[in-house]
């Protein structure tokens, strides 16, 4: 182990051997040729003035940033996957100021659905969890991590980004193909077996999507459903965040049940805000929101579990009718009896 303080006086050869990503730091500054026999200090001393100008750093700042880069990347490599076992929601008040009598612990591996009328505060609850609210949001809720008040550094530090979010408004904006995009993401996570993970995510995304896509499809050409499917597969397999918040992804033409199962299998706590009956019943627990407060917590019963299949069938029938109309079909007796009969 090279001691951090005097890393700057080690030869680059040694540093590059130990921290393979160290070269990226120089490349990102436009410095492609590195003399391995020099120490970081001496190397910084020899860098051309024009190069420094373009990098926007002087020699001293370059060394400081280089050392910070190494320690930050090391911190990043340490997985934050197992740092969260549970979160606890401690009630605040609803929109009328009435106390919300809640003390609810949610564990990793659970699926929680959130239901309630439009404007009732479902997205607000997800937002409270996302920012680990400490009675500092309009709801005055407090969120605990592993039963404790999260320390301030955990709240701020990016290495410990605890929450991944998926919502209907989110789109891919990068001008890349599916595989290039996954490669970038994998590199930023410093994953070793990049080809394998690309393959896994693409095939997983395809299992979830209605229509198939291949790894050379440009991201921006994916349909809404395909984008959502890829986002879920990527979040499950590449994102470190142990908590996943999903805000209204229904109607996206994806295999919802498989998608949720995939996330749970990866040891994540999944919260879904939804108006969709099938998704609502996928929660082990269902939080009912009214006037900005959690008004009821319902545990999924055996009876409800049994009815999910039937709801899914009805849902599929409605979907078929939609496709039928979309492709120029008309509604007739046969279609209606197919819908109402069993």
């Amino acid at each position: 182990m090279l001691a951090k303080e005097d890393l700057a006086s080690f030869k680059l050869e040694q540093i590059l051997a130990k921290y393979t990503y160290a070269r990226d730091f120089f490349i990102s500054l436009g410095i492609n040729e590195i003399d391995p026999n020099l120490t970081v200090k001496d190397f910084a001393g020899e860098i051309n003035y024009d190069v420094l100008e373009d990098a926007g750093l002087n020699r001293e700042q370059l060394i400081v940033n280089f050392l910070a880069f190494i320690s930050r990347m090391e911190a990043l490599k340490k997985s934050s996957r197992n740092v969260v076992e549970s979160i606890t929601i401690i009630g605040g008040n609803d929109k009328f100021g009435n106390a919300e009598h809640i003390n609810l612990e949610l564990k990793v591996g659970e699926v929680i659905s959130i239901v309630g009328p439009t404007g009732s505060g479902k997205s607000r609850l997800l937002a409270d969890i996302e920012c680990l609210a400490q009675r500092d949001t309009p709801t005055n809720r407090q969120i605990l991590l592993n039963g404790e008040v999260p320390d301030i550094n955990k709240r701020f530090s990016m290495e410990n980004k605890l929450v991944a979010q998926l919502s209907q408004n989110m789109n891919f904006v990068m001008d890349l193909s599916v595989q290039e995009f996954i490669r970038f993401h994998a590199e930023s996570r410093m994953v070793a077996n990049i080809e394998t993970i690309i393959h896994e995510i693409v095939s997983c995304g395809n299992e979830l999507a209605g229509e198939k896509f291949d790894q050379d499809t440009p991201l921006t050409q994916l349909s809404g459903g395909q984008s959502r499917a890829l986002m879920i597969a990527d979040t499950a397999l590449l994102s470190l965040s142990p908590i996943v918040l999903i805000d209204e992804i229904e109607n996206a033409g994806i295999d919802r049940r498989n998608a949720i199962e995939l996330l749970v299998k990866e040891e994540k706590l999944v919260l879904i805000s939804t108006h969709d009956p099938v998704l609502a019943l996928m929660g082990d627990k269902r939080l009912v929101i009214k006037n900005g407060g959690i008004s009821k917590i319902i545990d999924l019963s055996e009876e409800e579990k049994y009815y999910i299949d039937i709801l899914e069938k009805v849902d599929k029938k409605m979907l078929n009718i939609r496709n039928h109309l979309r492709t120029g079909g008309v509604i007739d007796d046969k279609i209606i009896s197919g819908l109402t009969g069993q």
Binding site: A164, V173, H185
Partner: peptide
């Protein structure tokens, strides 16, 4: 709020670099 989780993560990584 308008880009995917993965793009947020990649962008933040680039900022850190």
């Amino acid at each position: 709020d308008i880009v995917s989780q993965a793009e947020r993560e990649v962008f933040a990584f680039r900022v850190k670099q």
